[in-house]
């Protein structure tokens, strides 16, 4: 039987969840025996060329590109997993959800303390068609597409990611020790 194929991506995330995946230490050798990686920042494969068994999503959706990538993952993966708080509930990026987009952009590009004082007149809010559109708020992945499983944490503990992946691939029941299920 061929190995299950795994794809991963980071949407509105910080790559911390991917770091935590790498934090499984030498079990990474077991992991590459267990699964094959397809589209993922881990191996830099950029486009789907076949159907994958498991798609792992880090980060929520804050712009139109995130939505397209997430929908692409849903189309090309049999099982979709939300990995980490941002994918599950928006996380830190969702702290802007109470603030109108206009105010966020003005703070970021026109009025914020990190903007160059001397170039006040020349400041613009970038609006090139190449740039993804910012969404009205940051959405958890399961409010955009159907998500099958959730692995909480910021980042999820490496042990939890490992146990969850092994359980999913081998078909065994996942037992979660109390210490590894955390939201921070």
């Amino acid at each position: 039987m061929s190995k299950p194929v795994v794809a991963t991506t980071s949407l509105a995330g910080c790559f911390g969840c991917h770091m935590s995946l790498l934090d499984i230490d030498d079990r990474i050798l077991q992991l590459i025996d267990l699964v094959e990686f397809h589209k993922s920042p881990v191996d830099d494969i950029k486009t789907f060329s076949k159907m994958c068994d498991i798609g792992i999503i880090e980060g929520g959706c804050c712009n139109s590109e995130n939505v397209h990538v997430l929908q692409d993952f849903r189309k090309n993966c049999k099982i979709l997993i939300s990995l980490g708080e941002c994918a599950i509930m928006g996380g830190l990026p969702a702290m802007r959800n109470g603030i109108p987009v206009k105010e966020c952009l003005e703070e970021g590009y026109l009025d914020g303390p990190t903007v160059d004082e001397n170039k006040k007149g020349a400041r613009i809010i970038p609006n090139d068609e190449e740039l993804p559109m910012i969404l009205d708020k940051v959405y958890p992945c399961h409010e955009i597409v159907k998500v099958d499983y959730y692995i909480p944490g910021c980042p999820p503990r490496a042990d939890l990611i490992w146990e969850a992946l092994v359980a999913l691939v081998t078909g065994n029941e996942l037992k979660i020790p109390y210490e590894v299920l955390k939201f921070d």
Partner: peptide, 30 residues
């Protein structure tokens, strides 16, 4: 708006502790 990763009470929060006890992976409500 419960942002556990940035909350100073995280780890000492009773609401979060209850969510752990009941193994809340994701809220079923929007």
């Amino acid at each position: 708006n419960h942002m556990c990763p940035v909350c100073e009470k995280s780890g000492n929060c009773e609401l979060q502790a209850l969510a752990y006890r009941y193994k809340m992976m994701v809220p079923r409500f929007p």
